[in-house]
């Protein structure tokens, strides 16, 4: 991992540790501050001398966030939209990934370029035509319309990452199965699918995070009754800019599933973007 300890001065390590701890303090401060704020009563939040620990910890902020208009509706919407998008992208993406990882065919390279390129185009750049299209198709203000755009939002990454997981399953296994009399379908069903299981979980969790965090598209396409929690958070901010306590509590609730999921699968996340660059 690192150079032998003997070659390093103790003072050097102490200095490095000090800088490291300082770094941690600076990085963690905003996280600490949102927690600190969320549990404070309103009187402590709006104080000119902020306390660095809630004097009278309370759950009031969380209660008022949950009771705020559209919170529960948008929570439900978010869950529906996100799961639709993830399931859709996973099914479609897995098939495409299988094609790229297991077959050589005409246009394969072009397909890879498209997938890689599309991953880089921000959905925001296409927001105007998407809005015009969905508006024409009467799909604005529906959960289905947003779900469709979210499938496309997460599809490129899904294909790209799954391709890696499938490629990691030794081809010899496929061939052995074929020799043993499995059909193509059985090979897929009995060999590739179970062996890529963990990869499927990681990829769908990351898709969930991306779809859950999106707010610009949904905020443009839909009304509050058909938005998600992120859009709710944005609206909430603009309407009641100074209700910081409930806002921070809402922010905490909204990010909780994402943070938990992220920590579970973080090992796999950077892979799709930088894979190959970190080769041994």
């Amino acid at each position: 991992m690192s150079t032998p300890r003997s070659q390093r001065s103790r003072a050097g390590t102490v200095a490095a540790n000090t800088v490291g701890v300082l770094f941690v303090v600076v990085m963690v401060f905003p996280v600490y501050w949102v927690l600190n704020t969320a549990f404070k009563p309103a009187s402590e939040v709006l104080s000119f001398t902020p306390s660095f620990w809630p004097q009278n910890p309370t759950l009031d902020n969380f209660k008022s966030a949950i009771k705020a208009p559209f919170f529960l509706v948008d929570l439900r919407n978010g869950l529906i939209i996100t799961s639709t998008a993830v399931v859709g992208a996973m099914v479609v993406g897995f098939l495409a990934a299988l094609a790229i990882a297991r077959f050589r065919f005409y246009g394969r390279r072009a397909l890879i370029v498209v997938i890689l390129g599309v991953q880089l185009v921000p959905l925001l750049a296409l927001l105007i035509p998407l809005y015009l299209m969905l508006n024409q198709a009467n799909l604005t203000n529906t959960l289905f319309g947003v779900s469709l755009t979210y499938i496309v939002l997460i599809l490129p990454y899904t294909v790209w990452t799954l391709r890696g997981f499938i490629a990691a399953v030794p081809r010899e296994l496929d061939e052995a199965a074929l020799v043993d009399g499995c059909s193509r379908w059985q090979t897929f069903y009995r060999i590739i699918l179970p062996l890529t299981g963990p990869g499927l979980v990681a990829t769908s969790v990351y898709g969930f995070i991306q779809a859950w965090n999106e707010f610009i598209v949904i905020n443009t396409l839909n009304n509050p009754e058909t938005q998600n929690l992120m859009a709710w958070l944005l609206q909430n901010q603009t309407q009641r800019g100074t209700a910081w306590g409930p806002l921070m509590a809402g922010a905490l609730i909204t990010s909780l599933p994402v943070v938990v999921f992220f920590l579970l699968v973080q090992r796999n996340i950077a892979v799709g973007l930088t894979a190959g660059a970190v080769k041994g």
Binding site: M27, V28, P30, V31, V34, W212, N213, F215, M230, L233, L234, A251, T254, S255, V258, V259, F262, L263, Q266
Partner: peptide
Amino acid sequence: FVWAIPQLV
């Protein structure tokens, strides 16, 4: 933790 926090948040 910092990485996991949504941009908007």
